[in-house]
């Protein structure tokens, strides 16, 4: 026995074996002692355990972060797609709101003018240029659209007239087009004239010609259709007088007219069908 303990290595192994066995038994059988041992070991090892745990969490966070990057990128793509879809939906809703307003206006117009058949139509294409002198509508012969029918905005301002008709489309020439001349009158004084295009003027404007030099006309006067010529019905507002050009020695004068219709932001229009 003494010889055995003289061998340091064997003593070490024996000591460690006994120590291990004891700790096993303590931790299994005696909870109190096990708790004491736990407390004792924790006293020395808690800082190391904390360090382990801290490192574990730090490493986990570190690697988890990289795992998350790919997940986040996927989620980001998904969210971008969702936002795009939502934007499309919002755009559709806004479009429907505008259409709804336009339809309400058409309903009002129908109720106020029972003799007029009103067809609402969408602009499907415009010709190139900043101010559109012609544009195409999505209604045609199938909807009883015919040449020379009057086209107005939903706010009942004059746009022009139907110029060409297909099965399910119709082209409109506006009051800016040189082919279009509108019999007009000053709302306040009922003095007559003709509203037509004039390229010498600003392209956003028209001119009113054939006005007598004796006519009572002032800047700001409203101009409407007179019903002369048989194309346009009377009483549709065209625009306001912006300038008056008096020619010395002439019996006629001209006026610059600013149309009330906003030609750049047209979307839906009304086509007036009389006598049907």
């Amino acid at each position: 026995m003494n010889k055995y303990f003289k061998n340091k290595y064997k003593t070490l192994v024996l000591t460690l074996t006994i120590a291990s066995s004891l700790t096993i038994l303590i931790s299994i059988y005696n909870e109190q002692n096990a708790l004491f041992f736990d407390s004792f070991s924790n006293f020395f090892l808690m800082p190391i355990q904390k360090l382990f745990t801290y490192t574990e969490y730090a490493l986990y966070d570190f690697f988890h972060h990289f795992e998350n990057v790919s997940d986040l990128l996927k989620e980001n793509e998904k969210l971008i797609a969702e936002i795009e879809n939502k934007n499309v939906e919002i755009s559709k809703i806004q479009s429907l709101v505008i259409e709804n307003k336009d339809l309400k206006k058409m309903l009002d117009l129908r109720q106020n003018s029972p003799k007029i058949n009103i067809e609402i139509s969408k602009i499907i294409s415009r010709n190139a240029g900043n101010i559109y002198k012609t544009f195409t509508l999505n209604k045609g012969e199938a909807d009883s659209i015919k040449n020379n029918q009057t086209v107005i905005t939903v706010d009942k301002y004059l746009i022009g007239r139907i110029h060409e008709v297909g099965q399910n489309w119709a082209k409109v020439i506006t009051i800016f087009d040189e082919k279009n001349a509108v019999g007009a009158r000053v709302v306040r004084s009922l003095e007559l004239g003709v509203v037509e295009s004039d390229y010498s003027f600003d392209e956003n404007l028209c001119k009113m010609t054939a006005i007598s030099s004796l006519t009572d006309i002032t800047i700001g006067d409203y101009v409407e259709t007179s019903g002369g010529g048989g194309i346009y019905p009377e009483g549709i507002l065209i625009g306001t007088v912006l300038e008056i050009h008096k020619n010395p020695g002439s019996i006629a004068q001209t006026a610059t007219i600013k149309p009330l219709a906003d030609f750049n932001n047209l979307k839906n229009v009304f086509i007036l069908r009389y006598g049907e």
Binding site: V13, L16, T17, A19, S20, S21, L22, T23, I24, I26, S27, I28, A34, F37, D38, S41
Partner: peptide, 11 residues
Amino acid sequence: KVIGLNALFFM
């Protein structure tokens, strides 16, 4: 949960 088990075997 059992302290000493791994210590013994690993040794």
